[in-house]
Design a protein around this nucleic acid. Structure first.
Lengths: 344, 344
DNA sequence: TTGTAAGCGTTATCAG
DNA sequence: CTGATAACGCTTACAA
């Protein structure tokens, strides 16, 4: 594909018989231009199809109008939705988003921080998911605008947006309590994650029955394992409810419940967290706490960009966004047990 | 966040008591530099933490080393995986990826084409999914490097990577035939999509039994609707297999089958297409044809970037990538009908 | 209301 | 082996 010689501001100026300065001002409006002149210039601009070159503007202004987005795994629905939020918000404000997929890999993260040093981006939305925030990032964040999405990094005050994990735990706990459940199996997440901790604390605050805690790792298999392990241990008086700290583990738990012949929701109710697309498609569909992934992304991106443009000061605001309980088929009141109905 | 004054090549030159030219060449290696000088320069570079500024390099070279990626919906797993492929491949070759989410919206597409005009990106990976390719894109593609992922646009010869939809259809057809099925319900996709057409043609070529075709729209609800509609029509001799042209419709079909009390796979086997994550998590899990989404993205991005760097000529190569049948629980041989076993 | 000229940071050309 | 100098395309003092 041959690249035809670029139309520059000087071409326009020459054709309109004005100076480049005037053309620039017609476009930017930063100083008055006689209407007649302006009209002539605009006509030429249209005719020649002139658009200010990105590189020159960048060099001149020192701003690329690009922000970076670091996510660990785009195929994770949560991060995909978050990325859409970031992209939409940024685009609405005239900024582009360059994508960085870290794959939870520190080496790749470093390559992105490199871009920062090159001044190739104006700011960074960091949602890299792994708990041990690289020291490097922390160093960078002082001296470079970083915003945290779904993330809290100790010692790094920055624009932040997180879901209200605690309220989500409360929602789940209250829901199960109101359904009459008194014994719950809780499948936890990695303890070092603040989100895990908050969800659990919220649940404990609202669910006043007995709680058995199994630690999982947010993967499907660990949900399965938790139920199986507990199943071996249980002696006749098992839990009637499960709160899994994310949907993937909840699905694993459901699979295990099928294996041990306990029905959902008849024998055991189950609540997840996240609301991944699969949750709605399962049979039975999964009651879960929905995270506002898109909103987390758009909130943080919008605030970051506004701070970049100077519209607002770059102060480390922390947004805590509401979560929502989505009631589906996997939860039901205790005491309703179809195994005692006609077909037996 | 205060932005400290940038370290420029001149700072380095001054500190190392050489010219900027020499510093540049120490970095680029484009002409020999005395080892002693080079060492001194490198030391200063390290000490000052100098990195060539992105904007100036861009202005000088005319290349941004950025490619654009246009997808309709990142929360769609297929496009997320594709995006990861693009990002990884591009990054490996020193290119960044700016993300564009069109939301199937022509207006948003236009804004991205605008970036092209501004020379803000060097090339474009287009995977916008909607059948009516905008004329605008077609105009742009002549004169700007565009590569098509999972897309074929008539009259636009370009680097292209698509899944082998036809082979996928064949795989599904053969699988069901070998299981002994003789009557199949096929839930089609939008007829104007070449992928729909190819999948169907492949299926027809391998499945030699009777086929009833319902047209769907790739949404879950249309899979449900297809089964329901056919269910009303069926008089005692229904199909024993379903081929849904994507997984979402397959899931809708499974939901409908539950509603009409036909068991999967005992009464009806079902094959989907895509292999979305939910497919493996369902109960029963879904047999499906897996699309190499990541590979589509990485293939097309790698070739695009290589053509940009001049490593290969920018010729409209078309890559057809292999698909794979993933056998799970939703398909079984005909004739095995548990309703004729003990419990009746 | 408009123009001139300097400068943003880098690399290429040409000269030594 | 190295250095001046120009050029990339734009914005913005400063001047008229």
């Amino acid at each position: 594909v041959p690249t035809q010689p670029r139309v520059t501001i000087n071409d326009v100026a020459a054709a309109a018989r004005v100076s480049a300065t005037t053309v620039s001002h017609v476009l930017s409006g930063k100083r008055p231009v006689a209407e007649e002149t302006a009209k002539r210039v605009r006509k030429v601009i249209d005719r020649l199809g002139y658009t200010p070159g990105y590189a020159a503007q960048t060099l001149q202004s020192g701003s690329t109008r690009v922000i970076g987005l670091l996510v660990p795994d785009l195929t994770n629905h949560f991060f995909a939705a978050l990325a859409m939020g970031v992209e939409n918000a940024a685009h609405g404000l005239g900024y582009s988003v360059v994508l960085g997929n870290t794959c939870f890999d520190a080496e790749r993260e470093r390559r992105y921080l490199q871009m920062i040093r090159q001044r190739a981006i104006d700011g960074l939305v960091y949602a890299a998911g792994t708990p041990p925030a690289p020291d490097e990032l922390r160093r960078f964040a002082s001296g470079f605008p970083v915003a945290l999405a779904d993330e809290e990094i100790p010692g790094l005050p920055a624009i932040t947006a997180v879901a209200d994990h605690r309220a989500g735990g409360e929602l789940a706990g209250r829901h199960l309590r109101l359904l009459g459940h008194r014994r719950a199996l809780v499948i936890g997440g990695p303890p070092e994650l603040r989100s895990s901790h908050d969800r659990l604390a919220g649940f404990r605050a609202e669910f006043d029955g007995e709680i058995v805690l199994h630690i999982g790792d947010y993967q499907e298999a660990s949900g399965y394992a938790a139920v199986m392990a507990q199943s071996e241990r249980d002696a006749g008086d098992p839990y009637t409810a499960i709160f899994a700290l994310n949907d993937l583990m909840a699905l694993g738990a459901m699979r295990a419940l099928r294996a041990v012949r306990r029905r959902v929701p008849d024998d055991v109710s189950i609540v997840g967290f996240d609301d991944i697309p699969t949750a709605a498609l399962m049979n039975p569909s999964l009651t879960t706490v929905r995270q506002p992934a898109y909103l987390i992304g758009s909130t943080v991106a919008e605030e970051l960009v506004r701070s970049l443009t100077g519209e607002v000061a770059h102060t480390p605001t922390r947004h805590v966004l509401a979560v929502e309980l989505v009631e589906r088929e996997s939860t039901s009141p205790t005491g309703r047990d179809r195994s005692v109905t006609p077909n037996r």
